[in-house]
């Protein structure tokens, strides 16, 4: 049986208690507890008068249709979505699959009605940031890209913002690092606040760096490149498969593959692969279960010293030093 939850979001926080009630749950400090609908963490934090964040790290036990019907129109929602499983955003009857390997970043104007459908069994990881439009405008203006962004992501006719995108690899790592923390620790709110600012900073940098041309790439090609990226991330333990193989899998010529890959992700395939390998290496080091040599072997580096050298290049410190000062 599908549960239907009609709710609103906002920078001001009155909606939190309303939404908990609409879901049939209750509030416990910053946590919203709704064990019948999902288990895990649903946590809200007001960062300042311009920003509020909602974190949902939950597993759904029933199908839920969230019907977002805002009352205030002075803010926008920036949704970072790493859901594994089925979830769909519906605006004006247009559905978009959202989640880790689909559109995983959306910026949506508060004025728009948004339906969000999520299936039972899905593991959802969302960071939703609600930001006052006046603050967004200020940052874009300072960056000198207000007009440009307005024409790209604001709908001129309706004067609303709506844009679906794919988060940068860096945003993904920022979220992944935050995910390792246990909610409720003494510094948890500080780390969540930090994550929100990092994500906003990265998103602004992302808007700045990406060529407008990306809007002109055929969506089929975008998805083939993202699928290719996903394959690479799943095989970080192996050696780099080579451009020929990757291009063939993406049904493109090598030249087209390389060009599109760089445009869409900002990295060359090999640089993306190594960057993620080393991030994984750092994560493995942090759990203190393996030696540097073991990790180098796990990640298919030819020698431990090669791993050490690349780690130093990327992070500016030796793996050993990193582990010993954790």
């Amino acid at each position: 049986m599908m549960k239907i939850v009609t709710h609103r979001f906002g920078v001001e926080t009155a909606w939190i208690a309303e939404m908990a009630e609409a879901m049939g749950g209750e509030l416990d400090g910053n946590f919203t507890l709704v064990p019948e609908v999902h288990t895990g963490t649903r946590y809200t934090l007001s960062i300042n008068e311009d920003i509020t964040v909602l974190l949902a790290d939950v597993k759904y036990h029933q199908d839920v249709l969230f019907k977002l019907r805002n009352k205030e129109s002075d803010f926008a929602g920036i949704f970072f979505n790493l859901t594994e499983g089925e979830s769909v955003h519906i605006i004006d009857d247009i559905s978009r699959s959202v989640g880790r390997w689909d559109y995983n970043l959306a910026i949506v104007d508060a004025q728009l009605d948004l339906d969000y459908l999520i299936k039972a069994g899905s593991k959802s990881y969302n960071i939703s940031i609600f930001v006052k439009k006046k603050m967004l405008r200020l940052y874009l203006e300072r960056a000198g890209i207000l007009k440009d962004v307005l024409s790209r992501i604001f709908d001129g006719k309706q004067n609303t913002i709506i844009h679906y995108d794919h988060m940068s690899s860096n945003s993904w790592h920022i979220i992944n690092e935050f995910r390792q923390l246990t909610p409720g620790g003494v510094a948890y709110d500080l780390f969540l606040t930090s994550t929100v600012y990092y994500l906003l900073s990265d998103y602004l940098g992302f808007l700045l760096s990406r060529e407008i041309i990306i809007g002109k790439i055929e969506s089929g090609d975008i998805f083939r490149i993202l699928a290719s990226q996903s394959t690479l991330v799943k095989h970080l333990g192996d050696a780099f498969p080579g451009i020929a193989e990757l291009a063939a899998e993406a049904l493109m010529s090598e030249t087209k593959y390389k060009t599109l890959y760089k445009k869409i992700t900002g990295f060359t395939p090999h640089a993306f692969f190594m960057h993620n390998k080393l991030e994984l290496g750092k994560e493995l080091l942090a759990c203190k279960q393996y030696t540097v040599a073991e990790i180098a072997f796990k990640l298919s580096f030819t020698t431990a010293s090669h791993f050490t050298e690349l780690f130093k290049n990327q992070f500016g410190m030796l793996p050993k030093v990193y582990v010993n000062s954790l």
């Binding site: 510094a187 990265d202 602004l204």
Partner: peptide, 18 residues
């Protein structure tokens, strides 16, 4: 860099948290 200030806030909260 236009994103410097946001990044600095991110860094500061992180460092203070640690």
């Amino acid at each position: 860099s236009p994103s410097f200030e946001l990044m600095l806030r991110g860094v500061t909260f992180k460092v203070f948290g640690h």
